[in-house]
Computed example of a mutant assay.
Amino acid sequence: MRVVKEAEQRRNEILDAADELFGQKGFDGTSTNDILQKVGIARGTLYHHFKSKADIMDALIERYNVRLLGAAQEIAADKSIPVVERIIRVVMALNISGGSSEEIMEHIHKPQNALMHQKIQKVIINGVPPILTGIIREGIEQGLFNTPFPYECMEMVVIYANTVFDDDMVTMTDEERFSRIQAFIFNVERLLGAESGSLMDTMRMFGREDNSGNM
């Protein structure tokens, strides 16, 4: 007896299978036949939901988009969290330098998924600055920051962080990474017109302390 499933359920099954196969074999190494066999469906069923393998990848990217930006937006909207802590939590939720979406990032950082990686970066670079800008504007109202360019500042921050702290783009030792983080925070303070040293406590959120227990 043929199993008939709801369209959304079937679509998600195809995406789940493709996601697993892309992780194992890479986008280029996975064929539509592989996906068909994994899900156990006819080719016509696949093409009813997706026009091509590239279309499947774009749908996966959109699913990642919802998870990544959704987590960031949820944090940004929580005004019970102090402004500076919220900024860092948003960055970490996006795994720009480690965070709650590690599984997604580990998956797309595989060499065979370079195209997926590029598309996720585009999502982050276009989607994150507006989220952070709202928090920066709150900080301006509270007197924490002083900049006429909150969006542009956050665009610079996101592009730098998403590039330099991406192990696929820049290879660093732990010491080099720590130095980059210090310099990054030092310069973000100046971009935002924040008081010198006011953001350095955020180093604790990167898990680095010296022998005396200070950052």
Rank of each mutant, 00 (worst) to 15 (best):
F50M: 00
F22N: 04
G29D: 14
T45H: 04
H49C: 01
V90T: 04
S97I: 07
E103D: 10
D28S: 15
E74R: 15
E74G: 04
D55R: 01
T30A: 14
T45Y: 09
G26V: 00
E106M: 11
T32P: 07
A76Q: 07
H48Y: 13
I81S: 01
S52M: 01
Q24C: 04
E106I: 09
E85N: 12
V84N: 10
V84H: 14
D55A: 14
L69N: 03
A18S: 15
N65R: 13
E85M: 12
K51L: 05
E85P: 03
A76E: 07
E13P: 05
V83A: 01
A59P: 11
E74P: 05
D19C: 11
G23D: 00
S100A: 15
D34G: 12
T32Y: 01
I81P: 10
D78T: 13
R86D: 03
N12F: 13
I14H: 04
K51D: 13
H49T: 06
I104M: 08
A17Y: 02
E20A: 10
D58I: 00
N12V: 03
G29H: 05
G99Q: 00
A76I: 06
L94G: 13
L15V: 03
R86K: 06
A18Q: 07
D16L: 08
G23A: 05
I75Y: 00
K25T: 00
T30K: 05
A42V: 12
A42I: 08
A77S: 09
K79E: 14
V90E: 01
Y47M: 11
D55H: 14
R43C: 00
H48W: 12
A72E: 10
V84P: 02
K25M: 03
I56W: 12
E102I: 09
S100V: 14
H48K: 04
I88Y: 04
P82K: 11
A76T: 14
V90Y: 01
E103Y: 12
L15T: 11
L21C: 08
T30R: 09
P82M: 06
L69W: 02
F27K: 13
I88S: 10
D19N: 14
I14E: 04
E106R: 13
R86G: 10
I35W: 03
V39F: 06
E103N: 11
